[in-house]
Design a protein around this nucleic acid. Structure first.
Lengths: 209, 209
DNA sequence: GTCTATATCATGATAGAC
DNA sequence: GTCTATCATGATATAGAC
């Protein structure tokens, strides 16, 4: 969480944990497998919860499409509940996850795409039903932007600084953070198409200069 | 750009460049200083252009506030022009920059906050005039989310894009990308306040379960 | 299972000939 | 300025005593 995968040595981990250096390779096989085990333990249940929430929403909606707000909420709630639970790593785990998103190591990228493949597919289908006017390609991009804002926010490189500046009296709290992020993401998701947006014209104008 | 700062060795760089290993330390002093020199060469002029664009917009607007679309555009245009210019690194430089944003190394974080401090302050003030109803605190958060979506998008981690079934060919084109990103960001920036957003109620409802 | 000790290798940096 | 050669360090992983 603090230094990234590559820059965190097994020596630093094992001494901080008060265990022997050789224990990692004995129990996990390698540094990479340890890392995957750490992520899987929390990520797997969280993504499971996301799938179950969406399933329940779709069941309740009968055959009508679920609203955008509800789908987005179902995506965020499991992360928020995890952030609230110090016993399961709390906000530290989310920061670790946010860093992993930005890590270029191929094994991490492969791991994450395996972990998230199903979740993204299900949520994308749900959003597509909720936003029938939105072209599929546009939706793909907007989900990509959402993941970007989310992971950057969770990684919290500067977020913690920002929280300290803005909420000197509130505890640095991921719930506040997600409650501010959600309306931002919802608005972006339901934004007018690029051809219709006021900013497209401004881009054309300024590019012409 | 491909492996991150830590995982990129000076040996790999120097052999790829066809120069001697010792040249880096002779000309730049250290690996870190080389990295900063690489970034500064492009980042400095880009941020300078951002400041000049904003200054010109404000001059043209006389004493009225500049519109949100124009401010956002002024922020994106220099990046877009850089992306279009292969002679100045093109999209590769933007990917490198996006990775740097996500890097936890303290010297990189310090370097970026020095490079961006003035730009962010100027643009924040401009947005504040354009959105007088938006609380300053909320604006700070939204600028943070914007930087997140932007850097994640520029960094261009392929794995998650593939999940989202995005056309790899199209991902190569940063202009199309920014043209899709801009309306998303503008909508987020001008979204209703959290208390007024439809998603806040959905969050409350689902958290109660 | 857990430890010490170590093998093996790659790294950033530097010394010194040219 | 540029090269070769090398230093000191720290990395992951493993062998083998207990």
């Amino acid at each position: 969480m603090e230094h990234g995968f590559e820059a965190t040595s097994l020596r630093a981990l094992t001494t901080a944990a008060g265990v022997n250096l050789a224990a990692v390779n004995y129990h996990f096989g390698s540094k990479e497998e340890l890392f995957q085990a750490v992520l899987t333990r929390r990520l797997d249940p969280m993504n499971q919860a996301r799938l179950e929430l969406l399933t329940r929403l779709e069941a309740n909606a009968a055959r009508r499409p679920v609203s955008c707000e509800s789908i987005l909420t179902a995506l965020l709630i499991p992360a928020l509940k995890l952030a609230r639970d110090p016993q399961r790593g709390g906000k530290d785990f989310l920061r670790l996850l946010g860093r992993a998103y930005a890590d270029p190591a191929p094994f991490i990228r492969r791991f994450l795409s395996e972990q998230y493949g199903l979740v993204i597919a299900r949520y994308k289908a749900a959003f597509a039903r909720a936003l029938p006017h939105l072209p599929r390609k546009e939706l793909s991009w907007r989900l990509h932007f959402i993941m970007g804002a989310l992971s950057y926010t969770l990684a919290g490189t500067d977020a913690l600084k920002l929280i300290a500046e803005l909420n000197p009296h509130e505890t640095a709290n991921d719930e506040i953070l997600l409650r501010r992020l959600a309306p931002f993401l919802l608005a972006g998701l339901t934004a007018p198409l690029p051809a219709m947006s006021a900013v497209s014209q401004a881009l054309d104008d300024q590019l012409a200069l």
